[in-house]
Amino acid sequence: MKYPFLLLLPLVLAGCQQDSAPTRALPAARIGKQTITEQDINDRLPFLSAEDREFAKTPLGHQNLVQIITREKLIAADARATGIADSDEYRSLLADKRAQLDQIYNEFAADTLERLWYHKLEESGSLAVSNSEVDDYFKKYPYEMTIKQIIVDNAQTADQVLRTLKAYPSRWKEMERQYSTAPEALKQFSFMPGEYLDNIAVIAANSPSGKPQGFFKTAQGFHIIMKTGERRLSKKDAEPRIREVLKNKKTDDVLDSLKNKYEVVIYEKSE
């Protein structure tokens, strides 16, 4: 919103003229029995851009802002008087927007609570990773693997796909396109042990490249994997990833202890 442009609006309302600098105690405008006060004007200022706020401090800018707010109030008054505010369409749109805002608020509340929980955990030192822990992990896992995978939602299909791929590995793309529910990021990717599902990492680490393996059930579905490569990492490249892996493992340990504390039960659907 740029007020110099809006000065061109052909809206001149009686009672909107000001002969002196604005004062909070004085009314700025009136529409019937409704008064627009200087406080109303000041309450609008934080929502303006820095440039528009500066302009609104001038007599001309202040007058323009009064006219804009008056115009909005005038439209609202007539919309109420003519029954628009009581219409089903208006109430439906408000209800939809309130539901959206409630969802945004609830998501923000949950995200903020989780963020502060992690912050408190970090402050306590529970997630701290020492240099010796990093060194020990790197000695065991100084490499990353690259795999491609197909994820399907039932065991029967997984068995069918695996049989086909063991007989005809070259049909991987065809099977992937036809059956896989894996998101794009999980179709082919590289990871260090600890960065992805542990059981998948173990199978990949002990599998030859180019041979389909599976199928393995996880919360994501039924996995068929094929290792396509493996390479050793430098300590410099591996260290930040190892720290993140170990931090996540410490977080999982805390969460596991909380499951016992709060008696968590997860019911799995049977096939």
Rank of each mutant, 00 (worst) to 15 (best):
F47P: 13
R80V: 05
L60W: 05
L13K: 07
A28V: 12
A79Y: 11
A167N: 09
V245Y: 03
A21N: 03
D256A: 08
D102I: 13
G210T: 05
E133H: 01
S126N: 12
V66Y: 00
V129T: 01
L255C: 05
P169M: 01
I104F: 06
S20P: 00
A81L: 08
Q178D: 09
L127M: 02
F216S: 13
Q100H: 07
P59C: 11
R163W: 12
L258N: 02
P212H: 00
L121P: 08
K261C: 07
S49L: 08
I224Q: 00
P142V: 11
A155K: 14
D86C: 03
P169A: 05
A109P: 07
R171E: 09
V264L: 05
A25V: 11
G15Q: 04
P142W: 11
K140S: 12
G83P: 08
K259N: 13
K259A: 09
L233T: 03
C16H: 03
T112R: 08
D102S: 03
V254Y: 04
Y262M: 06
H62M: 05
K148V: 03
R53M: 15
L11I: 13
K217C: 10
T251V: 15
E230G: 02
I266S: 12
E107L: 06
A56H: 00
A204C: 03
F215P: 15
D111F: 09
N154I: 09
L233G: 00
F108R: 11
W117F: 13
Q18L: 06
K235P: 02
G214W: 00
D96G: 04
I151W: 10
E268M: 07
L165T: 05
D135W: 08
V254S: 02
I150A: 00
I147D: 00
I69H: 01
N42Y: 08
A81Y: 11
K148S: 01
Q34H: 14
D252R: 14
L11C: 06
Y105Q: 15
L48P: 09
R98F: 13
S270L: 12
E176P: 03
I200Y: 02
G125T: 00
I242F: 06
T112D: 15
S87C: 02
D111M: 06
L127I: 02
D19L: 12
Q103H: 08
D111H: 07
I68Q: 15
I104Q: 15
L93I: 02
S257K: 12
Q39D: 14
D88R: 12
Q67N: 14
G214M: 00
R91A: 14
T251N: 12
T112G: 04
D256L: 11
Y90F: 14
M175Y: 04
G194S: 00
